[in-house]
Structure formats: structure tokens, C-alpha cells
Design a binder for these strands. Sequence first.
RNA 1: GCCCCCAUCGUCUAGAGGCCUAGGACGCCACCCUUUCAAGGUGGAGAUCAGGGGUUCGAAUCCCCUUGGGGGCACCA
Length: 495
Amino acid sequence: MTTRVRIAPSPTGPLHIGTARTALYNFLHARNVDGTFILRLEDTDQVRSTVEFEKDILDGLHWLGLEWDEGPEVAGEPARGPHAPYRQMERLPTYAAAAQRLLADDLAYPCYCTLEELEADRRAQEAAKQAPRYVGRCAHLTPDERRAREAEGRRGALRFRVGEGVVAFDDVVRGRVEFDVSNLGGDFVIVRADGSPLYHFTVVVDDAAMEITDVIRGEDHLSNTPKHILLFRALGYDVPQFAHLPLILNPDRTKMSKRKSQTAIDDYIAQGFVKEALVNYLALLGWSTGTEEEILPLDELVKRFDIKEVHKGGAVFDRERLEWMNGQWIRRLSADDLIDRLRPFVEAELVAGRIERVPSDEELRALLPVIQERLPTLSSIGDLAGFLWVGDVDVDPAMLVPKRWDIATAKDAVAAARETIADVGAVSFEADELEPPLRALAEERGWKAGDLFMTIRVAVTGRTATPPLFDTLVALGRDRALARLDRALAVLEGA
RNA sequence: GCCCCCAUCGUCUAGAGGCCUAGGACGCCACCCUUUCAAGGUGGAGAUCAGGGGUUCGAAUCCCCUUGGGGGCACCA
């Protein structure tokens, strides 16, 4: 039998790091065993679900390169796969039929308890320091009693009878796990009073309908698994294999949350992380190849992935390590690819008013040799080279004067450098033609070359940390370099 | 409160009884390279393998207990 796995996000928020990691592990496993990767939207929480979030999630998974084999229709494209629809709100009749079967077999029953009654039960249990559970008030209503309540206009929610006994299963990552049914919290609701089905129910009906063989999900679902198994059995379905992944954690080791960490994939994209780095980093959060190699592309991860080697313990999300990995991947991108990916970030700089014009592809390409290894993220392009794409830069006179110098020396140096650079540029303007005369100038005046270079650097860029000076001067062009030196001199005069 | 899960450097991890006086990576600190910043290279600090009992000739690795941490217990997913 071919392996079928699924990722089943709820469109109640933007694509979360945890969902992306779960999707990735499902994808890696599916591709590793040549199985099928299915996407299903669990949108039964009509209050919180939105089409915007749905689009965000789909776009994010697509951006990461996690293509699904079966999934819902999106953006005019028809649904893929034999089990459509793949959006739960479009599968209501399926759940209704399953609910009807359970009701007919008395495996489920209508519950007329009001929310107030249930809330009161919970409070009483809490006061008595007992575990919250449904007390079973409606578990054994006679047909007459049910009719009486219906006649009062009360609508029953449907509760599933959990029965008693022990539910055990062999989790692929955790091994054998057992739960006593008495600890499940009593009979649980599978269909709301308004007729809409609930998660525990739809997930089982759909996993069965879509013939899911391996349910790979977060550890937060481990305690829910016995409920699901009971439902699979009650409905006469085969129980799939389960694999519960370790949670991704906040620095304080609680489940990663928006409150304490940056969780939206969107934000990582906006901050200039590349998909290769995110995928690579996430893959290694909770699993390792067993070797010391760690920079691995998606296809290589697929080859080496083994769901049985996934760790049991949660892993703290370490942004510093992600950033390092992002740098590793940026350095591995081809010139064309990097230029394409840089483009939106350069444009964002323009929109933000931090630069005044957008460089051409050729300008960016010429810069790549000196900026590629200096970009921790794509978004750092502005900080790194933005001074090239503005008319003038603000220069802090204090930064123009190296520690060993006084203002007079700095003025002298800027003026002399201006002449030297002008002389070089009169013929051509190349990095290796600029360096010798400027070094000679430093030597002649008894200046440390580094001091002279720093003064020039600040004069033409306004900053102390830049790509190599001579390449920077070339990128700026002779005229603009000279103009900025003139301006720096004026700044010093005024200081 | 009840149930379940987990436990190697600050963090991600290697380790499936002797190869471990515990290896790698991120971060940190030095040094090298160097016009700044990076990148790269070299080296260093950093874990009595949570603690305690067993089993064994021998345990980070197996068992038990304790402690600690986490997750779940909705007419949310």
C-alpha cells in the first residue's frame, strides 16, 4: 500500500513556523518513500477562518517549495486528487452521514446541556480539584426525554460515547503509548448544536476518506490520539500510523507562540530569509542526518530523511543559527538567482524612502563579488549598499577623523585624496588602479593607510562599515565620489 | 487536579554497553588574513551526559525511583 500523508492547516492565522515544519516533515517522508502528500484545509472554525489566511498558508507552503500532490482548488486551478473537495466546509455531507451512522448505532447521542450547565460543571470540578470531564447528564436520556427537550426548542449537540478500557498505539517516534479511556474527559462533542462538525470528528472522517496511512503531526496532538482511534474504530475504519513530532519551543521552552517568538513565515520572508535556509533549518530542528553535514538542499533532505529517527524532545527555535544558515545559503546562490531575489528588497528600500533610485541588474551583478558574502539576509542589502543609490549621504564629521588624527589632518587627507582619485579617474576608474596611488599618498604623508582609507570611506558612504573601499569607489563612479569628497570637506570646514 | 510525553555544552545536535579523559554546529573569546565590515582559517572557554539507585567486568547509552520541564484535558484546531 502506498503511503499517504497530509498537512491539515486551519486558516485561522498566517502560516506558522510549526505548521511549516510539520508540513515539511510530511513532505520529506512522502517524497522519501515515494508516497503522496495531501493538503487539506480544516476550516470548520467558521468564526476564525478567513480566505486571507487560507491564501497566506497556501502561498507560504508554495514559497517553501512544499508542493502537494492532492489539494483544494486555488486561484482558479481545479482541485487535484481523487478525494475532492479538500476543504472541510465543502465536505459537510460526509460528516453528516458519518454522524448519522454513529447516532443510529447509539455510539453517539444528542446532548442538550446548556453552555451554562457545562460551565457550572467545570467550575464545580475545579473547586473539587478534579479533572474536568463531561458528567454524562444526557448520556442515557430516553426517547421521550429527548423529544421533550426538542419540543422545548432545544437543539442537541452530538456527543461520542468513549466507553471504557485502554487505548494503546505504537507511535512511530515515541513508541508504545497507552491511555485509559477514563482519562479522556468523558463523552466529547463531535457535532455542535448548530450542526457543524468539530475537529476531532472531521479529522478522523477525512483521514479515513482520504486514505491517510501516516498521520504526522505535532506532539500537542498526542493526548488527542486516543479519541481519534476510538472514532476510527466506531466508524469501522482502519487506524492509521501515528508519528508525533517534538514541539518547536520559545526560548523559555514553552510551545512556540506568537507572543514570545516570531512565528509567521511571512515575517521571515519579509526579513530576507531564503527558503533554502528556512527549510534546511526547520528540517534539522528535531531530526538530524546522523552525520556532521548540515547544509543540505531539499532534495538531499528528502533522500536522507527517516521518520523513525525524529527526536522525542522539543527544540528551542534559535534565530541566530537560522541567520547563520541563511548566510550560508545566500553565498551559495547563483548571481542571477540572487539578483532576482534581491530585487523586491531593493524596491522595498525605495518605497521606504531609504534610497532614491533602483539599481539595474547589471549594477547589482557588478556588486555581487563584494556583497554576496556580506549579506546575512536579503533585506540587509539597503544597509550594505544603499549609500550607492542616494544623491547625497549624511556625514558625521566626528567619524571623518580617525583617533590618531586631528581635524586639520582629516581636511588635508580628504583634499589630497580627492586630487589623487581625480587623477586616477582621468584615465580610467578601476579598483586596482585606485589602490597604489592612495597607498603612496598615505606613505608620503606619513599616514597609516587604514586611517586614510577610513576617512575616504566615511566621506563617500557616511559609514564606517562598508564593502571594500576601492570597489565601493568604482561602484559610486568618479564624479559622485569626487562630489562626496568635496561635500565631506565642506562638512569638516564647518566643524 | 488528572492523563500523557520528554531530559547530552547557553542553543541545535552526534552518541543505539567498551571507539567518550563525550564529537560537530550556532553563539561567545582569542589569534591569523585584512583598508573597515564581513567571509574564511586556526585555537579556546563551555556538558561530573538532571539527581539517585540498580543490571553489567564495563553505562551518556538498559531498568527503577526522584526531580525538573513540556503538552493535553472546549459546542478551538
